[in-house]
């Protein structure tokens, strides 16, 4: 089977691809990790990973710029209902609207908005950068073999705010409670970077690889 890491010009995807390869090796899976933006390849993939670096707006515009990519992703996720894993801004793009630099439409797969983290009158530094503990809110395959309060690596200034509380899988505390993982049917995402979260991160990627939706 093949898993595609969507390449739409958002920074380095090698780390994510390499971490997925390592996760597949750990599981003895014969999984091919492909990095591309080619709609044909994406359509034939079993699962996809949507990374994201930079601003919500740049990322969404980056996807729109590639002919057929937005439609292909919508079809993959909404019609074919195949598994997608969004990482960092990749997860944020699941929301209906982002407010980084200016209002920008997202995929709208999960009812929510992406807004700047409240820095509590400058008491908190932004970006929220470094290792923070996650609070598991409900059972989800993505976090099997991950202990509650495990540390994950974060680097972001905007947060995913959703009204669909049943989609919230994990939160972290940075001034307020911040949603750091969402799941809805075939759609999962993390605000933190599993590909940068050492052993715990690899376990999460393994869980995604093992997932049969």
């Amino acid at each position: 089977m093949s898993i595609t890491v969507i390449d739409y010009g958002s920074g380095n995807l090698k780390s994510a691809a390499k971490a997925l390869e390592t996760a597949a090796e750990n599981l003895n899976l014969d999984t091919k990790i492909v990095v591309t933006s080619d709609p044909k390849v994406i359509k034939e993939s079993k699962k996809i990973v949507l990374p994201g670096q930079g601003s919500f707006r740049d990322c969404y515009l980056g996807i729109k710029k590639i002919t057929g990519l937005e439609d292909t992703l919508n079809e993959f996720v909404l019609v074919k209902k195949k598994p997608i894993f969004g990482i960092c801004v990749g997860m944020q793009l699941f929301a209906k609207t982002g407010y980084e630099s200016q209002e920008t439409k997202g995929f709208g797969w999960i009812d929510g908005e992406v807004r700047k983290i409240n820095n509590m009158n400058k008491k908190l530094k932004l970006p929220h950068m470094g290792w923070n503990e996650i609070e598991l809110k409900k059972d989800c395959f993505l976090f099997s073999n991950i202990k509650n309060k495990s540390h994950m690596y974060f680097i972001h200034s905007y947060e995913f705010m959703t009204k669909q509380k049943d989609c919230i899988v994990a939160t972290t505390n940075y001034g307020n409670s911040i949603t750091v993982s969402v799941a809805k049917e075939n759609i999962v995402g993390t605000q933190f970077h599993p590909e940068k979260s050492q052993k715990n991160g690899l376990i999460i990627l393994e869980n995604f690889l093992k997932w049969e939706f």
């Binding site: 090698k14 780390s15 390499k18 971490a19 690596y153 970077h193 590909e195 940068k196 050492q198």
Partner: peptide, 11 residues
Amino acid sequence: VKKTAEKCFMP
């Protein structure tokens, strides 16, 4: 950097 990033899944 390339060789390190292939081995170390950390920032």
